[in-house]
């Protein structure tokens, strides 16, 4: 692979393309790389969003993180949510994709509907689901009127149930994305493989295990990694749905960062937590990608 500088110097490349690529690179550096470094610098200070200037305090913010019980709780919940939601959203996504892997017009319409949760803003998703899950909401109305429960269920009011409810909503959102990813992968599987499997006497279950699962392995890597990263930085849906409550039970790490920065006025400490979350996300994403890539080769 040639270094990037060669690509820019290579006069055989179209000048227009090089300008556009340079513009993209500048935007990436300014809006992604630079803020990360600014945040890293801030994490070693006592920066306050209301005050000019800050003092260098070394590793004090990072040391404090070790004893911060609210941070610990939010990280544990975020990790549990990421693992649970990723598993559920990918299973549902694959099932939906298999159901929708047809070319008829009605299936194409259904595919669009399946993708809807992903394109709706997280804020709107939160508001809609809040309407569904509150005490007099749609779900409780249906359950009580059909006599499936005698009293409305406290979906967002008890800590454990609220945690599960948030998980269900986020899995619903992500299943739109995973469905599309798996659908694209399924459509690239040559039909001849299934024909050959049938001739060899493989039943539907064996065909799923030996052909479908193996052929969608690269899509699984992408889908699982992106799902994990999405949940690890989740903010908007939870903020609208539960505001992190009851009693911080559904507070994600991203919410805790915002609260620390803009309610407690501890921008430096919030930056340290953000750096930790970035490192955690990177380690998880790299580990999972490497693990799943190895699995792709094995398959």
């Amino acid at each position: 692979m040639r270094p990037l500088t060669h690509w820019f110097r290579d006069t055989t490349q179209d000048l227009g393309l090089r300008v556009i690529a340079a513009l993209g690179l500048v935007l990436y550096l300014v809006f992604i790389v630079l803020p990360v470094f600014m945040s890293l610098r801030s994490s070693f200070t006592d920066e306050n969003p209301l005050k000019a200037g800050s003092n260098w305090i070394g590793l004090a913010n990072y040391r404090e993180m070790l004893h911060d019980t609210q941070l610990r709780d939010s990280v544990v919940y975020t990790l549990a949510l990421a693992i649970g939601v990723t598993a559920v959203a990918n299973v549902i996504g694959l099932l939906f994709a298999m159901l929708l892997d047809r070319t008829d017009l009605s299936y194409r319409v259904l595919r669009t509907i399946a993708f809807l949760p992903q394109v709706i803003s997280g804020v709107i998703v939160g508001f809609v689901w809040k309407t569904i899950l509150t005490q007099d909401g749609l779900l409780n109305s249906v359950l009580t009127r059909s006599h499936l429960v005698s009293h409305p269920v406290d979906w967002l009011g008890t800590p454990h149930l609220a945690q599960v409810s948030v998980g269900v909503v986020v899995a619903w959102v992500l299943s739109g994305f995973t469905t599309v990813v798996y659908l694209a992968a399924l459509q690239n599987i040559p039909r001849e493989l299934y024909d050959a499997g049938s001739i060899d006497g493989a039943n539907a279950r064996q065909q799923f295990r030996m052909i479908t699962l193996r052929m969608v392995a690269p899509a699984t890597t992408i889908s699982v990694t992106i799902s994990l990263i999405t949940v690890l930085k989740l903010y908007d849906v939870i903020q609208v749905l539960t505001s992190g409550g009851p009693a911080n039970a559904t507070q994600s790490t991203a919410q805790y960062i915002v609260k620390t920065a803009f309610s407690s006025d501890r921008f430096g400490y919030a930056s340290a937590i953000a750096m930790f979350l970035l490192a955690l996300s990177a380690v998880i994403a790299l580990s999972v990608t490497s693990l799943l890539r190895r699995r792709e080769v094995d398959l």
Binding site: K130, L133, T134, Q135, D136, H151, P152, V153, D154, W155, L156, G157, T158, G245, P246
Partner: peptide
Amino acid sequence: FEQGALNVSYADSIKN
């Protein structure tokens, strides 16, 4: 308190 008090929004509490 009402049953499921933490599952009732402020706006709904006024209506109720």
